[in-house]
Design a protein around this nucleic acid. Structure first.
Lengths: 100, 100
DNA sequence: TGTATATATGAATTGTTGTTCATATATTTA
DNA sequence: TAAATATATGAACAACAATTCATATATACA
Protein backbone atom coordinates (compact mmCIF):
# COMPACT_ATOMS: atom_id res chain seq x y z
CA UNK A 1 0.00 0.00 0.00
CA UNK A 2 0.91 3.63 -0.32
CA UNK A 3 2.81 5.36 2.41
CA UNK A 4 0.26 7.60 4.05
CA UNK A 5 1.21 10.01 6.80
CA UNK A 6 -0.35 9.90 10.24
CA UNK A 7 -1.70 13.36 9.54
CA UNK A 8 -3.45 12.28 6.39
CA UNK A 9 -4.92 9.22 8.09
CA UNK A 10 -6.21 11.48 10.82
CA UNK A 11 -7.79 13.81 8.28
CA UNK A 12 -9.29 10.83 6.54
CA UNK A 13 -10.97 9.61 9.71
CA UNK A 14 -12.20 13.13 10.40
CA UNK A 15 -13.61 13.22 6.91
CA UNK A 16 -15.51 9.96 7.34
CA UNK A 17 -16.97 11.26 10.59
CA UNK A 18 -19.13 13.64 8.59
CA UNK A 19 -20.88 10.62 7.09
CA UNK A 20 -21.11 8.91 10.45
CA UNK A 21 -24.21 10.61 11.75
CA UNK A 22 -27.80 9.86 10.77
CA UNK A 23 -28.87 13.46 10.53
CA UNK A 24 -25.94 14.42 8.34
CA UNK A 25 -26.23 11.38 6.09
CA UNK A 26 -29.94 12.15 5.61
CA UNK A 27 -29.07 15.72 4.67
CA UNK A 28 -26.40 14.55 2.28
CA UNK A 29 -28.79 12.06 0.75
CA UNK A 30 -31.38 14.77 0.26
CA UNK A 31 -28.89 17.12 -1.36
CA UNK A 32 -27.84 14.46 -3.83
CA UNK A 33 -31.05 15.41 -5.66
CA UNK A 34 -30.09 19.05 -5.74
CA UNK A 35 -29.93 22.16 -3.60
CA UNK A 36 -32.52 22.85 -0.95
CA UNK A 37 -33.27 25.54 1.62
CA UNK A 38 -32.76 25.00 5.33
CA UNK A 39 -36.46 25.08 6.09
CA UNK A 40 -37.22 22.67 3.25
CA UNK A 41 -34.60 20.26 4.55
CA UNK A 42 -36.00 20.47 8.06
CA UNK A 43 -39.53 19.90 6.84
CA UNK A 44 -38.60 17.06 4.53
CA UNK A 45 -36.61 15.27 7.23
CA UNK A 46 -39.04 16.20 9.99
CA UNK A 47 -36.30 17.79 12.06
CA UNK A 48 -36.09 20.97 14.10
CA UNK A 49 -34.65 23.94 12.26
CA UNK A 50 -31.81 24.34 14.72
CA UNK A 51 -30.80 20.71 14.39
CA UNK A 52 -30.50 21.14 10.66
CA UNK A 53 -28.66 24.45 10.98
CA UNK A 54 -26.17 23.01 13.43
CA UNK A 55 -25.41 20.05 11.21
CA UNK A 56 -25.24 22.22 8.11
CA UNK A 57 -22.67 24.36 9.83
CA UNK A 58 -20.53 21.30 10.42
CA UNK A 59 -20.85 20.25 6.78
CA UNK A 60 -20.27 23.80 5.58
CA UNK A 61 -17.17 24.28 7.72
CA UNK A 62 -15.80 21.10 6.19
CA UNK A 63 -16.67 22.32 2.71
CA UNK A 64 -19.00 19.44 2.06
CA UNK A 65 -21.88 21.79 1.34
CA UNK A 66 -22.04 25.35 0.15
CA UNK A 67 -24.75 27.92 0.81
CA UNK A 68 -26.30 30.37 -1.59
CA UNK A 69 -28.56 33.08 -0.30
CA UNK A 70 -31.71 34.00 -2.18
CA UNK A 71 -33.65 36.57 -0.27
CA UNK A 72 -34.29 35.28 3.20
CA UNK A 73 -33.70 31.72 2.21
CA UNK A 74 -30.38 30.00 2.04
CA UNK A 75 -30.02 27.11 -0.32
CA UNK A 76 -27.48 24.43 0.40
CA UNK A 77 -25.87 22.22 -2.21
CA UNK A 78 -23.21 19.56 -2.09
CA UNK A 79 -19.86 21.16 -2.77
CA UNK A 80 -17.94 18.22 -4.09
CA UNK A 81 -18.44 15.46 -6.62
CA UNK A 82 -16.74 12.94 -4.38
CA UNK A 83 -19.52 13.13 -1.81
CA UNK A 84 -21.98 11.22 -3.92
CA UNK A 85 -19.35 8.69 -4.87
CA UNK A 86 -18.52 7.95 -1.26
CA UNK A 87 -22.17 7.83 -0.32
CA UNK A 88 -22.91 5.36 -3.08
CA UNK A 89 -19.91 3.15 -2.38
CA UNK A 90 -21.00 2.84 1.23
CA UNK A 91 -24.57 2.24 0.19
CA UNK A 92 -23.50 -0.50 -2.19
CA UNK A 93 -21.72 -2.18 0.70
CA UNK A 94 -24.77 -2.00 2.96
CA UNK A 95 -27.13 -3.33 0.31
CA UNK A 96 -24.69 -6.05 -0.63
CA UNK A 97 -24.42 -7.18 2.99
CA UNK A 98 -28.21 -7.15 3.36
CA UNK A 99 -28.57 -9.76 0.67
CA UNK A 100 -25.90 -11.90 2.32
CA UNK B 1 -32.06 9.77 -6.38
CA UNK B 2 -33.04 6.38 -5.21
CA UNK B 3 -35.62 5.99 -2.50
CA UNK B 4 -33.65 4.86 0.52
CA UNK B 5 -35.35 3.90 3.74
CA UNK B 6 -34.62 5.63 7.02
CA UNK B 7 -33.34 2.31 8.28
CA UNK B 8 -30.83 1.96 5.49
CA UNK B 9 -29.64 5.53 5.92
CA UNK B 10 -29.14 4.81 9.60
CA UNK B 11 -27.15 1.67 8.83
CA UNK B 12 -25.13 3.64 6.33
CA UNK B 13 -24.17 6.24 8.91
CA UNK B 14 -23.32 3.48 11.37
CA UNK B 15 -21.14 1.92 8.73
CA UNK B 16 -19.23 5.13 8.06
CA UNK B 17 -18.65 5.51 11.78
CA UNK B 18 -16.21 2.63 11.63
CA UNK B 19 -14.01 4.72 9.37
CA UNK B 20 -14.44 7.78 11.53
CA UNK B 21 -11.83 7.00 14.15
CA UNK B 22 -8.09 7.44 13.80
CA UNK B 23 -7.19 4.19 15.46
CA UNK B 24 -9.56 2.17 13.32
CA UNK B 25 -8.61 3.89 10.09
CA UNK B 26 -4.95 3.19 10.85
CA UNK B 27 -5.75 -0.45 11.46
CA UNK B 28 -7.74 -0.63 8.25
CA UNK B 29 -4.94 1.04 6.36
CA UNK B 30 -2.46 -1.46 7.75
CA UNK B 31 -4.63 -4.42 6.84
CA UNK B 32 -4.93 -3.22 3.26
CA UNK B 33 -1.45 -4.71 2.85
CA UNK B 34 -2.57 -8.07 4.19
CA UNK B 35 -3.40 -9.87 7.39
CA UNK B 36 -1.51 -9.15 10.58
CA UNK B 37 -1.52 -10.35 14.19
CA UNK B 38 -2.82 -8.22 17.04
CA UNK B 39 0.60 -7.76 18.57
CA UNK B 40 2.10 -6.85 15.21
CA UNK B 41 -0.60 -4.26 14.64
CA UNK B 42 -0.06 -2.79 18.09
CA UNK B 43 3.68 -2.62 17.58
CA UNK B 44 3.45 -1.17 14.10
CA UNK B 45 1.01 1.52 15.19
CA UNK B 46 2.68 2.07 18.53
CA UNK B 47 -0.54 1.45 20.42
CA UNK B 48 -1.38 -0.48 23.57
CA UNK B 49 -2.49 -4.02 22.98
CA UNK B 50 -5.83 -3.45 24.65
CA UNK B 51 -6.57 -0.43 22.51
CA UNK B 52 -6.04 -2.51 19.40
CA UNK B 53 -8.07 -5.41 20.75
CA UNK B 54 -10.97 -3.15 21.66
CA UNK B 55 -11.06 -1.57 18.23
CA UNK B 56 -10.62 -4.90 16.49
CA UNK B 57 -13.63 -6.19 18.36
CA UNK B 58 -15.67 -3.31 16.99
CA UNK B 59 -14.48 -3.99 13.46
CA UNK B 60 -14.96 -7.74 13.90
CA UNK B 61 -18.50 -7.38 15.23
CA UNK B 62 -19.30 -5.30 12.17
CA UNK B 63 -17.72 -7.92 9.92
CA UNK B 64 -15.16 -5.50 8.59
CA UNK B 65 -12.32 -7.74 9.68
CA UNK B 66 -12.10 -11.45 10.29
CA UNK B 67 -9.76 -13.30 12.65
CA UNK B 68 -7.82 -16.49 12.01
CA UNK B 69 -6.08 -18.19 14.87
CA UNK B 70 -2.65 -19.71 14.36
CA UNK B 71 -1.37 -21.03 17.64
CA UNK B 72 -1.43 -18.26 20.17
CA UNK B 73 -1.58 -15.56 17.59
CA UNK B 74 -4.68 -14.30 15.92
CA UNK B 75 -4.33 -12.80 12.48
CA UNK B 76 -6.80 -10.22 11.33
CA UNK B 77 -7.66 -9.51 7.71
CA UNK B 78 -10.13 -7.22 6.00
CA UNK B 79 -13.31 -9.13 5.36
CA UNK B 80 -14.68 -7.23 2.44
CA UNK B 81 -13.46 -5.89 -0.86
CA UNK B 82 -15.51 -2.74 -0.44
CA UNK B 83 -13.43 -1.60 2.51
CA UNK B 84 -10.43 -0.72 0.41
CA UNK B 85 -12.62 0.95 -2.16
CA UNK B 86 -14.22 3.21 0.41
CA UNK B 87 -10.88 3.95 2.02
CA UNK B 88 -9.37 4.94 -1.30
CA UNK B 89 -12.32 7.04 -2.39
CA UNK B 90 -12.09 9.01 0.83
CA UNK B 91 -8.35 9.28 0.49
CA UNK B 92 -8.67 10.58 -3.05
CA UNK B 93 -10.96 13.28 -1.74
CA UNK B 94 -8.55 14.30 1.00
CA UNK B 95 -5.56 14.43 -1.32
CA UNK B 96 -7.55 16.30 -3.94
CA UNK B 97 -8.58 18.93 -1.37
CA UNK B 98 -5.00 19.28 -0.17
CA UNK B 99 -3.88 20.40 -3.61
CA UNK B 100 -6.76 22.88 -3.71
C1' DT C 1 0.80 -29.24 35.15
C1' DG C 2 2.88 -24.85 35.81
C1' DT C 3 4.63 -20.84 33.37
C1' DA C 4 4.94 -17.72 29.60
C1' DT C 5 2.82 -15.59 25.72
C1' DA C 6 -1.11 -13.71 22.97
C1' DT C 7 -5.45 -11.83 22.97
C1' DA C 8 -9.95 -10.39 24.97
C1' DT C 9 -12.82 -8.06 28.06
C1' DG C 10 -15.03 -5.40 31.99
C1' DA C 11 -15.23 -1.20 34.64
C1' DA C 12 -13.98 3.40 35.34
C1' DT C 13 -12.82 7.63 33.48
C1' DT C 14 -12.52 11.19 30.23
C1' DG C 15 -13.42 13.53 26.09
C1' DT C 16 -16.47 14.27 22.37
C1' DT C 17 -20.72 15.06 19.97
C1' DG C 18 -25.73 15.77 19.06
C1' DT C 19 -29.86 17.88 20.57
C1' DT C 20 -32.60 21.29 22.95
C1' DC C 21 -33.89 25.74 24.14
C1' DA C 22 -33.40 30.44 24.01
C1' DT C 23 -31.92 34.10 21.49
C1' DA C 24 -29.40 36.70 17.91
C1' DT C 25 -28.79 38.16 13.13
C1' DA C 26 -30.29 39.06 8.50
C1' DT C 27 -33.71 39.97 5.02
C1' DT C 28 -38.15 41.28 3.29
C1' DT C 29 -42.29 43.81 3.28
C1' DA C 30 -46.11 46.45 5.23
C1' DT D 1 -38.92 51.43 10.88
C1' DA D 2 -41.63 47.75 12.93
C1' DA D 3 -43.12 43.10 12.25
C1' DA D 4 -42.59 38.71 10.14
C1' DT D 5 -39.78 35.17 8.26
C1' DA D 6 -35.45 32.45 7.61
C1' DT D 7 -31.34 31.01 9.42
C1' DA D 8 -27.47 30.85 12.81
C1' DT D 9 -25.47 30.31 17.16
C1' DG D 10 -24.27 29.82 22.25
C1' DA D 11 -24.85 27.28 26.48
C1' DA D 12 -26.46 23.39 28.95
C1' DC D 13 -27.40 18.75 29.04
C1' DA D 14 -27.33 13.94 27.84
C1' DA D 15 -25.64 10.19 25.33
C1' DC D 16 -21.88 7.97 23.51
C1' DA D 17 -17.28 6.37 22.50
C1' DA D 18 -12.21 5.81 23.21
C1' DT D 19 -8.61 4.82 26.34
C1' DT D 20 -6.63 3.00 30.55
C1' DC D 21 -5.88 -0.39 33.84
C1' DA D 22 -6.60 -4.65 35.76
C1' DT D 23 -7.69 -9.14 34.89
C1' DA D 24 -9.48 -13.19 32.43
C1' DT D 25 -9.07 -16.68 28.86
C1' DA D 26 -6.66 -19.51 25.62
C1' DT D 27 -2.69 -21.72 23.70
C1' DA D 28 2.03 -23.51 23.72
C1' DC D 29 5.80 -25.49 25.76
C1' DA D 30 9.12 -26.83 29.36
Amino acid sequence: MQNISLDTLFELSEFFKFFGDTTRIRVIHLLLSGEMSVSAIAEKLNLEQSVVSHQLRILRTANLVKPTRDGRKIYYALDDEHIGEIFNTGLAHILHKKKG
